[in-house]
Computed example of a mutant assay.
Amino acid sequence: MSSGIGYRGTNRCFPLWEDFQQCYFSSKEKTRADCVPAREDYLECLHHFKEIARVRTIKAVERDNYNKSKANGTDHKIISLSDNGSS
C-alpha cells in the first residue's frame, strides 16, 4: 500500500491499514496472531465480505417469510429500499 492519499484525499480504509501495519511491525511473535483482528477489519473495509453475507442472509429470510405467508394466505410484502417504496 502506498501513502493512502490519492487525488480525492485519504482512502477510507487507510486508517485501518495503518493500525494493521503498526500491529504487524510491533508484534514480537513470528505468527503475528495478535494482528488478525486488525487484518480482518482492514479486509472488511476493502471488500465488505461480512456485510454482503449478512445482507444475503436477511434477504433469504425475508423471501422465506414471504413464501410462508403466501402459503398461509396472509399479506406479507417484500420491501425494497432501492425502489423508494414503490413495490
Rank of each mutant, 00 (worst) to 15 (best):
M1D: 12
M1P: 08
M1V: 10
S2A: 09
S3F: 03
S3I: 05
G6C: 09
R8Q: 14
R8K: 13
G9R: 06
G9I: 08
G9A: 10
T10W: 03
N11L: 10
R12N: 09
F14A: 03
F14H: 15
W17D: 01
E18F: 02
E18W: 01
D19E: 15
F20Q: 00
F20V: 03
Q22W: 05
C23E: 00
C23H: 00
Y24A: 08
Y24F: 15
Y24T: 02
Y24K: 07
F25Q: 14
F25E: 14
S26R: 13
S26L: 13
S26Y: 04
S27T: 07
K28M: 05
E29N: 09
K30Y: 05
K30V: 09
A33T: 05
A33Q: 10
D34R: 15
D34T: 07
C35Q: 00
V36D: 07
V36A: 09
P37R: 06
P37H: 07
P37E: 04
R39A: 12
E40G: 00
Y42G: 02
Y42S: 00
L43G: 01
E44W: 04
C45H: 03
C45S: 02
C45G: 01
L46A: 02
H47R: 15
F49H: 12
K50I: 06
K50C: 05
K50G: 08
K50E: 09
E51F: 13
E51T: 14
E51H: 10
I52W: 13
K59T: 07
K59F: 03
A60N: 12
V61F: 05
V61N: 12
R63C: 04
R63I: 06
R63T: 04
D64I: 04
D64V: 00
N67W: 07
N67H: 13
N67D: 14
K70Q: 13
A71L: 07
A71I: 03
A71H: 02
A71S: 08
G73Q: 07
G73W: 06
T74L: 09
T74V: 07
T74Y: 05
T74Q: 09
D75P: 02
K77G: 01
I78G: 00
I78S: 04
G85Y: 05
G85H: 05
S86G: 00
S86P: 01
S86H: 12
